[in-house]
Design a protein around this nucleic acid. Structure first.
Length: 843
RNA sequence: GGGAGCUUAGCUCAGCGGUAGAGCAAUGCUUUUACACAGCAUCGGUCGUAGGUUCGAUCCCUACAGCUCCCACCA
């Protein structure tokens, strides 16, 4: 088979992938063959409506490397694909689409309520079905060797069943409960959020100082003991609109300034109601005036104080982003308008003392960047503490290892301080909570099957809870739900626990920690033994890629121009552990040059074998009996030193790559491949090989065998990183046969060899040769010295010259006797002349 | 406020106790029968700063600075 002029990935990548797919090359067996081990990775499921971004490309590349590497080692490998229903993200997409389709009753754009829940969910399923193929097709473009026959979706029947089972069991175990608590609420998404979904963000704000007059219970002003004037407490706040819901003011019990007002009351500005002055050591005497207003319904700290002091909770900020009826004159105003109005009114009432600039953190909704408001609301929670304990132990005992190690500390930190997980979301798209509220006795019935009557009073007037579960709830079950749980499927037995969980470090808490928790609780064993985390991909300046900044590097664009393999190799070689990946398009271009280099090295071999009028020696060489490897092994001692050298270097490269893959140092593996292939094999070995290849006979034959063997082995070693080009080149080699290819593939109409089924090379000490390596170092040094001499003296490579050397010592004499011819040609010198001591060397 | 990581040639990064490395960029030469998506050579760094340990430090320790990230309820 002949090769094209240069590396053109577009010519073969799609066809290769189609061939793999058609022949089910990546389908895992449900059970292991005798003596076989299983190796499984479940993919971090991308959003079903998403498009492939560089983070996905990195994740897919790294996981495919591991999977292909283990597959070549003979493991029963499963790489399980799937997508996530992505509650808010998907729902928002469909809502946007609906909004474009028409107007609702009052002339505003259509929304989901106009359709109704059932219709809306139907629409969303349709959207999902229409869009799902986009991201999976893109994953295929990258060469991902996923077992598509086992593809799952977080809302498919099996997974829905698993979700329901888990919910019911946790509820029965009292680990899921419903409670009225303060939670983060996004007024745009109109749903509760978990702590993780709120991103603290630096914002410039103001600190307003407000006056709260202090009075007795009956309303008479409290006089200042020293001045005799009415006491007014000045309180600083960053959110003046919350004063509508104040139910107390607090001072520190030991604060001498305020001892006279303990037990008194404050007149709430604008609202006029009396609220108690309470004391609590929580108050920081140093901050502001040392006095604090308490709004239990709208601040996490105030909520705790409110519970502690049994304060009423007045909800003034509504879930719709407007002030509630409790807000009196301000009811119906948007929060921001309410603030403006309140500040005006305070000013008028002379209750606003001063305004200062104040740097502060604001919690923003992760999804829409709207300010997340703390609101008291009835939600479902998972009690995390008891579940976290065994998950912490699993890491401590080494049942789960984190790599890089530093993430283990971060994991402990979070798990040790874990708070209950708010799992209910006020959305329609997702797993609806399997709980029914009795309209008569308020009993909640949670069940695996749909409920028609209250479990307590038997009333048939029951209504299903409207909320759906946090998207991450179903993702947390992913490692076992995708394998068939709660059924005891063969696949579950074969592949659980999975081998490695690989993902970006940004979802360590969202996903990884929760999978560990759920896996241990429901399977009685960890969901995976190793957690490999990769860095974030940024643009070449180190900025986060974002659509608004316009700095997004689209993996699909890159692949279109340079091919999947160069992108994969680039990502792999940049996948370090300690810093973000700064990706530049140029870098992928450089790697494309590497692919082209390998392409041409292979072409070089073909050129030797294909009859060619310009090269009288060229012609086929037949494969040695028993194969090249066996032949080279038995003749190793008699091979030319350059052949022994390259075989020895190849072993060393295999060793480095194997080590890189097994120790989660993929970047080092990529470097080892690059250095061997380009710097040693292409730059030196191929140049050396040209000399014997010009002569007919044994030396030529031996060199062809070595060339063929090194290339073939190199392709195998590189295959996990660059699957397309390696297989393309490998199949072009004259001695490659479709051996090892499973029957289902071999029996196909075309039986192209598939590299994925061939064994990953193992380091073979039979090919290690220290003396050949030492000798080559010497030879290279001599040639390099001559090249330097040329460079420094401005002698062009064309200019021929004679090298005069002293050769009094025997070793040097032998050396030049042995390699003199090679040096002549490779360093382009006319002749080497020996000169006596005292004579000066000249060109 | 707590914690982590990073700081090495113009750029992107390796190296991590023993005379500074690669790729790209720049410059020069070369179209020699694998490759100009190339080859060869050259240019280029007191390895963030200041101390300490050591015979010896880019590499270990301690401070400091800058950048990045994570966690945290200071109004």
């Amino acid at each position: 088979m002949s090769l094209g002029k240069s590396y053109e990935p577009q010519a073969f990548e799609n066809q290769r992938y189609d061939y793999w797919l058609k022949n089910e090359c990546f389908v895992a067996a449900d059970t292991n063959a005798p003596g076989q081990k299983s190796y499984a990775i479940v993919i971090p499921p991308p959003n079903v409506t998403g498009v492939l971004h560089m983070g996905h490309a990195l994740m897919l590349t790294l996981e495919d490397i591991l999977i292909r590497w283990r597959r070549m080692h003979g493991d029963n490998t499963l790489w399980l694909p799937g997508t996530d229903h992505a509650g808010i993200a998907t729902q928002t997409q469909v809502e946007k689409q609906i909004a474009k389709e028409g107007k609702g009753p009052t002339g505003r754009p259509l929304n989901r309520h106009d359709l109704g829940r059932e219709k809306f969910i139907e629409r969303t399923w349709k959207w999902k079905n229409d869009h799902h193929h986009i991201i999976s097709d893109q994953m295929k473009k990258l060469g991902s060797s996923l077992d598509w026959s086992r593809e799952r979706f977080t809302m498919d029947d099996g997974l829905s069943k698993a979700v329901r089972e888990v919910f019911v069991r946790l509820y029965d175990e009292k680990l899921i409960y419903r409670g009225e608590r303060i939670i983060n609420w996004c007024t745009r998404c109109r749903t509760a959020l978990s702590d993780l979904e709120v991103i603290p963000t630096d914002r410039k704000g103001s600190l307003w100082s407000l006056r709260y007059p202090i009075v007795e219970k009956d309303g008479t002003p409290v006089k200042d003991p020293s001045t005799g004037e009415a006491t007014v407490l000045t309180i600083a706040t960053t959110r003046p609109e919350t004063l509508l819901g104040d139910t107390a003011v607090a001072v520190h019990p030991e604060d001498d300034r305020y001892k006279n007002i303990h037990g008194k009351f404050a007149v709430l500005p604008l609202m006029g109601r009396l609220i108690p002055v309470i004391t609590d050591e929580y108050v920081d005497r140093e901050f502001g005036t040392g006095a604090l207003k308490i709004t239990p319904a709208h601040d996490f700290n105030d909520y705790d104080l409110g519970v502690k002091h049994s304060l009423p909770m007045i909800q003034v900020m509504g879930k719709d982003g407007k002030i509630t009826a409790e807000g009196g004159a301000y009811a119906g105003l948007k929060f921001s308008d309410a603030r403006t109005k309140i500040l005006e009114d305070l000013k008028t009432a002379e209750l606003l003392v001063k305004v200062e600039d104040h740097a502060m953190k604001l919690g923003l909704c992760q999804r829409c960047e709207q300010i997340a408001e703390p609101i008291v609301s009835a939600q479902w929670f998972v009690k995390m503490k008891p579940l976290a304990e065994p998950a912490i132990a699993a890491a401590q005992t080494g049942k789960i290892e984190f790599s890089p190690k530093m993430h283990e500390k971060i994991y402990y930190e979070w798990m040790n301080n874990i708070r209950d997980w708010c799992i209910s979301r006020q959305l329609w798209w997702g797993h609806q909570i399997p709980a029914w509220h009795c309209q008569k006795c308020e009993e909640i019935t949670v069940s695996r099957t749909d409920v028609t009557a209250c479990s307590k009073c038997k009333s048939t007037d029951v209504k299903r809870d409207e909320d759906v579960l946090d998207t991450w709830f179903s993702s947390a079950l992913w490692p076992f739900s995708t394998l068939g749980w709660p059924e005891k499927t063969p696949a579950l037995g074969t592949f659980y626990p999975t081998s490695v969980l690989e993902t970006g470090s940004d979802i360590l808490f969202f996903w990884v920690a929760r999978m560990i928790v759920m896996g241990i609780h429901f399977m009685g064993d960890v969901p995976f033994h190793k957690v490999y985390l990769h860095s974030m991909v940024r643009d070449e300046k180190g900025d986060k890629m974002s659509k608004s900044k316009g700095n997004v590097i689209d993996p699909l664009d890159i692949m279109k121009v340079h091919g999947a393999d160069p992108l994969r190799f680039t990502l792999a070689s940049m996948a370090n552990h300690s810093r973000d990946i700064k990706l530049s398009v140029d870098r992928v271009g450089d790697t494309r040059a590497f692919a082209n280099k390998i392409w041409n090295a292979t072409k070089f071999l073909h050129l030797q074998l294909d009859p060619n009028p310009d090269m009288p020696i060229a012609g086929p060489v037949s494969e040695p009996k028993g194969g090249a490897e066996a032949w080279l092994k038995s003749n190793f001692k008699n091979l030319h030193p350059t052949n022994r050298w390259i075989l020895s270097r190849l072993q060393s490269a295999i060793h480095s790559v194997e080590q890189g893959f097994s120790e989660w140092e993929v970047d080092k593996a990529a470097a080892a491949i690059y250095d061997f292939a380009w710097l040693e094999f292409c730059d030196w070995y191929i140049e050396f090989s040209k000399l014997p290849l010009r002569k007919a006979g044994k030396e030529r034959e031996e060199t062809i065998i070595t060339l063929h063997y090194v290339l073939e082995t190199l392709f195998k070693v590189m295959h996990p990183v660059m699957p397309f080009v390696t297989e393309e080149l490998w199949t072009s080699l004259p001695w490659v046969k479709p051996a090892n290819t499973p029957a289902r593939v071999r029996d196909g109409k075309s039986a192209l060899p598939v590299l994925a089924f061939h064994a990953f090379p193992k380091k073979d000490i039979a090919f290690s040769d220290e003396s050949a390596e030492t000798e080559m170092v010497r030879l290279k040094a001599v040639i390099e010295a001559i090249r330097n001499f040329r460079g420094e003296n401005g002698l062009s490579p064309k200019k021929e010259f004679t090298l005069h050397v002293h050769m009094k010592d025997g070793a040097a004499k032998d050396f030049f006797k042995k390699y003199g011819g090679d040096i002549l040609q490779l360093a382009r010198i006319t002749e080497i002349k020996e000169i006596g001591k005292g004579e000066s060397a000249s060109k």
